[in-house]
Design a binder for these strands. Structure first.
Lengths: 244, 244
DNA sequence: CAGTGGTCTAGACCACCTC
DNA sequence: AGGTGGTCTAGACCACTGT
């Protein structure tokens, strides 16, 4: 018995999107099972009064998301191990909130500074520029978890201390209409410096996870530079990679 | 002066693909500059004798790759900071070869073992199963770089010691018709154990980068499980993330 | 207002796979 | 041979942007 979807032609939501969302829900809920073959494009089109290109668009989106795979002459099937997290950007803050923990944030430094060298160059500001520098300490259940240093191009927005303590940085950027759509991350293991060991309550020289990131908006303009260190006993990075 | 592309209708290569490849080359070579607006769909279609949907397909592929961005009512523009690496899977071996270094590999263990618990379950083999276990030491310029432990479902292929010392694991899988298209990675910082410190020539307790990965084929079937440790002074992970 | 990209349709032919 | 997805066409109407 094929899954039944409903499309609303009076809705402003595109038909292909209505369809792909309902198909995704059917897969994630287990109504469409791993490995199972779904209906053909023609069947879906006929049963829901859609054209083949519209149905195709919906299916293609799910193929790109890694939920379906197709083979010419064979059919379209549900993947066997849908990876939990699609390729998305999340901040640690959002991760913890989703897990039901209650992280707190303390702003250690928030000021406008003059920088030269790598930082302004990575932000596309030339060799010397004024930027907003933020240093925050994130804690969970009273234990320090990470030390986060961020540099932002001046003028795009002026975050307040209180806002930085109550929201994730990406959330704040989003509320200012700044959408992070791409990021390049470098992840290293480092030994805790004296300062880091004092702030994070770990022994000097013990392993820390270090992340350096450049975040870009839709246009490819850098909007933020990060250098974060995380306690290795409480945090890891999880990424889903898709070839092609 | 707009960029000129040539499409060959006698070629088996799809027209949209011929177009998108030439546009990508024009962007990467700098012939189309960051921020610059490219021709409209209609202009491209008219000038090259293509239909609008075909041109649209080519452009959409480059938008998905993060090389172009579009705004309704405005136009299609080249992004300002094309990220070097698209979202692709690479092995350390391939990384080093591309950098012109000459890595060598030594197979420490290669055998069929019976495992239970997490390993067979992650590989979708039930709670207990026979798998191929490989342990390799990678060196560059005579210095140990990483210790790699891999588990593979039995039967999909029988790697030879010599093959494993001369090729990357993914390369070998590919030659067997096994295409890795997705992977879920966890990256941690760990302290070197006694064994790891001996093999990698680092002090016990010093920071190491640890990666655990499940690699999947097109169908979402697990094809390989990894647990690698890397010396933190010579390696880092670089990832490009794309939202949506 | 004119021009852009976003969506949608109804066809067509083809390459590939399974039977 | 029949059915699948892959490609391609020539239209159409709409939403949004900048002037």
């Amino acid at each position: 018995m094929p899954a039944e979807y409903t499309v609303d032609r009076t809705s402003p939501v595109p038909l292909y999107f209505q369809l792909s969302q309902q198909m995704e829900a059917a897969i994630r809920s287990g109504h469409l099972k791993p490995g199972e073959m779904i209906e053909t494009e023609m069947q879906l089109a006929a049963r829901h009064g859609l054209s083949r290109p519209t149905v195709r668009h919906a299916i293609q989106d799910l193929v790109n998301k890694g939920l379906l795979f197709r083979r010419r002459g064979v059919g379209t099937h549900v993947v066997n191990s849908p990876l939990r997290r699609s390729v998305e950007l999340t901040s640690l803050y959002e991760d913890l909130v989703r897990a039901g923990r209650e992280p707190t944030t303390q702003v250690l430094v928030l000021k406008r500074i003059l920088v030269e060298g790598e930082v302004p160059e990575a932000l596309n500001l030339g060799s010397k520029a004024h930027v907003t520098y933020v240093e925050r300490l994130r804690m969970v259940d009273g234990e320090p978890l990470s030390l986060m240093r961020n540099w932002l191009p001046e003028g795009q927005f002026q975050p307040k201390r209180s806002a930085l303590e109550e929201n994730g940085l990406y959330e704040l950027l989003r509320s200012q209409g700044i959408h992070v759509t791409m990021a390049n991350q470098q992840i290293r293991a480092t030994a805790a410096t004296a300062e880091e060991s004092r702030i994070l309550h770990v022994k000097k020289g013990s392993p820390l996870l270090n992340m350096r990131r450049i975040a870009l908006n839709e246009e490819g303009q850098p909007v933020e530079l990060s250098n974060h260190v995380y306690r290795s006993d409480t945090y890891m990075f999880e990424t889903t990679l898709m070839a092609r």
